[in-house]
Design a protein around this nucleic acid. Structure first.
Lengths: 208, 208, 208, 208
DNA sequence: AATGAATGAGCCTTCATTCAT
DNA sequence: TATGAATGAAGGCTCATTCAT
């Protein structure tokens, strides 16, 4: 029973989720340095002392969340992409759907994963994690794409980038809009329809 | 002499710049909440007391900077775009060149303008500013574009978005790379060349 | 079963000893305020909750230990001194041997009994105990000493004090040396020999 | 103006003394770990924040006090002993008078200098200071004593120890009594008279 | 009886802000 | 105008104590 974080991991799943979501949200919103542990405890409905009983330090809590997030992103996102589909648009559609689903399940996950800090202590720990992550980055998601379908004479690398950035731009727009209307459930059907429209335009352009 | 910030605005321009740049840099780097007023004062070469003599509170200083930034972005960026060029690619190239120039003159300006905070006080003030900004947002930059050149049957609004996002994606990539190699002066010629290559691809795709 | 501490006193002696020694050690080492209850529980091999089940509060535990220590010091030290020996040096030698024996049996006892605190709560309680202790203090150990052997014209009270302090100084030196070499068993024979040498010098001086 | 502690050292002497005495007292009473900075600030009549403005950390404050104490003990105690007097009793009387004077001027100085800590950080710093101190320890105070006056056949080293311990015992008795009657000014004349009486007894004993 | 999760007061420290000079 | 000493609220963390099991 004494491995690290075992106190937390032995909790019932519901309480774990409450704490994780509260922490994810606070760190995602304010960044490491400015996030308040007492705010996390309040949001999770537990006492300050208990939070430290589980995680010892703010830093340990943050790094636990980081590992937890990376694991989810890997297993429920990167690893789920079916690379049998060689067509970049089919692949992208898949990726996008997975991401929507994941955001639905873990609203603060992606924002958390982009959080930064000035704490040298934390930075150092993060660096060492980055090495492991390199092998599972976004690059993998777009490996083994069928390039024969692209218009002739085009720099395929650049073409793929354009498509990737355009889709990313659309995703950001959706996220931005979701932030504004905060608590309303987004209309996923409408979004998907619009997404497909963008994919179609790009497909017509990029392919012969 | 009683308008707010008059104490600051009556300083000689050189000192004003020193203070503004110091503040812009600190807020851009650390965000509102984690920025340190004494760090700003030190970097500007004035005392903490004097900084508060000029601006009263950290919040007021931040909002002053915000307004100052928006004004620069408006007058030296948005307003400078020559809308005589109706071709979206010509227009985009113009916008991009202006942005590079502006970053050169005010290195922390755009990073500052993207800074976030969790201080409810500040958030509220920012909201009210956003309304004013809507009228001068990026939208204006792409008004009055010649849509006749686009491939037939394409949703032009979506097409423009795609082009915008793709270019934005490229810009972000450049900024990311600049952050990594910190102090080295970027090779603007090479960047512009690559930028033009992306524009060309998009032009071939989008136009007939 | 309702007298205070009855829960503890009903335990088997072995467990009682484990708890007492753990607490004695912790308080002796760190003083009242800085001693850690969980450390005591760990060292005793019981849970934090159980420790409080036995003693209610840290303060009560401390005062219980204090009373326990005083009782031991009285019964196994003060009361053991055979006042039949009227010669101060014979008496002192006896006292010293008893003390060595007691330290051997209860290594933390004397250090504990010298522990201090700033907790006003505890101080007040200690004060009231001091009154009771006065009747059994070191004074008693040197009652009924044959003063006829001392050099004439000497203030015997002062002479006894000198002898007492000198011996005390030697004892402290030994304890200091024991602390430095921590775990090594002291060479009691050598110490006793040296002790006797000091007694001899004093005897030659003080007596005719 | 930027050498460390300059903020504190530039204060008027009266305020410095108030802070030093408050800190000395608190550390002397409770030891490093349990001393409370807020208590020090309160006793000194300043705010918590200001104390840290002067000293940055509790540790730095403690080490500053340590250095300050050692310097005083060296310059106003060890260095003041006139080693021209070879007679141990004359020397001891001198030392004792100096100590009384010093305790009068700095009531908590000697108690502070004996304070201990569990903080490894502080312990380490203290170790390095101890090396410097070795050269100025008590040993020096009793160098170059005329041993020809002692009774023949006596182990002079042991004899000196006895005298030293006896005098130390008397000093402790006086300090204990002073603690009990807290604020009353001790009757120095009476103490000195008694002290001389003890010295006389020892002299008669030890010398031919 | 026995455990250890849970609480909250209190500690050291930082920092925006005020104020005497 | 200009300085930096001074304040106190708030943050991370510890620990005696309570309580459900």
């Amino acid at each position: 029973m004494d491995p690290i974080f075992s106190k937390f991991l032995n909790l019932d799943k519901e309480k774990q989720q409450r704490v994780l979501n509260a922490a994810l949200k606070e760190f995602a919103r304010k960044g490491y340095d400015d996030a308040s542990t007492i705010e996390i405890a309040k949001e999770a409905g537990i006492s300050k002392g208990l939070l430290f009983h589980y995680f010892n330090t703010k830093k340990d809590l943050f790094l636990f969340l980081y590992d937890y997030s990376m694991k989810i992103i890997k297993t429920e996102y990167f690893d789920m992409v079916n690379t049998k589909d060689k067509d970049i648009f089919v692949r992208l559609r898949q990726v996008y759907l997975l991401k929507i689903e994941l955001i639905h399940k873990h609203p603060w996950l992606f924002q958390f994963s982009a959080v930064s800090t000035d704490s040298k202590e934390v930075k150092k720990e993060l660096e060492s994690r980055k090495l492991e992550m390199e092998s599972i980055g976004y690059g993998k998601m777009f490996e083994d794409i069928d390039e024969s379908k692209f218009k002739e004479g085009v720099d395929v690398e650049k073409a793929k980038n354009i498509i990737f950035w355009a889709i990313g731009g659309y995703a950001n727009k959706i996220i931005e809009e979701a932030k504004v209307s905060e608590l309303e459930e987004p209309d996923y059907d409408k979004i998907l329809e619009e997404f497909d429209a963008y994919l179609d335009i790009l497909k017509v352009w990029a392919y012969n």
